[in-house]
Amino acid sequence: MIEVVTRHQHAATIVSIKGDVDLYSSPSVRKAIIALTERKTPAILVDLQNVSYMDSSGVATLVEGLQQTGKYKGHFKLFGLGLAVREVFELSRLDKVFEIYPSEDAAFSSLI
């Protein structure tokens, strides 16, 4: 099971994901993120603190979000990556492509 909760706080929209993001669950994550990018949400912060696993379909979903926000010059940032999630970003060398922050506060601060 996966939970995807979207909330708006100040100038940003936070997408909090809880659970494993894999081929089964990534469509739910994609649906939430694409709904935001279609509305040209200016700043999307993806909370991965409670994601214990992510595969390439999850990474692909985040790459899509990054690219869609880039089209309208929005912000798309990640925070709270645990060991397993960080592993997949490093193996795919995407840790240098995304803006990744240790915490929600740090991600917020980067918007100022």
């Binding site: 595969d55 390439s56 692909a60 979903t61 690219q67 997949v88 795919s92 995407l94 492509v97």
Partner: peptide, 13 residues
């Protein structure tokens, strides 16, 4: 890997 786009990473991983 420099071709940043969704998908195509499974074999690399």
């Amino acid at each position: 890997l420099d071709d940043i786009r969704p998908g195509g990473l499974g074999v690399h991983l």
